[in-house]
């Protein structure tokens, strides 16, 4: 199985950057530790929409059953949660 990590990460960052531009959030840096919830960029529904988009784009179905959002509100954390084998 090809390593999806880098392309998922790029997709997540691009989606966040688009949303930030739409909302008028300036000066954000979308590095691995960027927390899209703490920054106010996404709320719970924004998070669902983002995860839906990743699933559709990469034809994945994620299992977040045992996951605490503490682990997936940053770019790194989300990519790790979505694709555990890249951890």
């Amino acid at each position: 199985m090809p390593d999806l990590g880098p392309s998922v990460r790029a997709f997540v960052v691009e989606t966040l950057a688009q949303r930030a531009a739409q909302l008028g959030f300036d000066g954000l840096e979308f590095d691995g530790s960027f927390d899209f919830f703490e920054s106010g960029l996404l709320d719970s529904l924004g998070l669902i929409t983002l995860i839906d988009a990743v699933e559709t784009q990469f034809d994945l179905e994620m299992d977040l059953t045992g996951m605490d959002p503490e682990a997936f509100t940053t770019v790194d954390g989300l990519v790790r949660s979505l694709i555990p084998e890249t951890a």
Partner: peptide, 15 residues
Amino acid sequence: PSKRSVLAPGAYIRN
């Protein structure tokens, strides 16, 4: 639960 755990507290309920 923390501010983040509140988003989707499935794991929190169990832990």
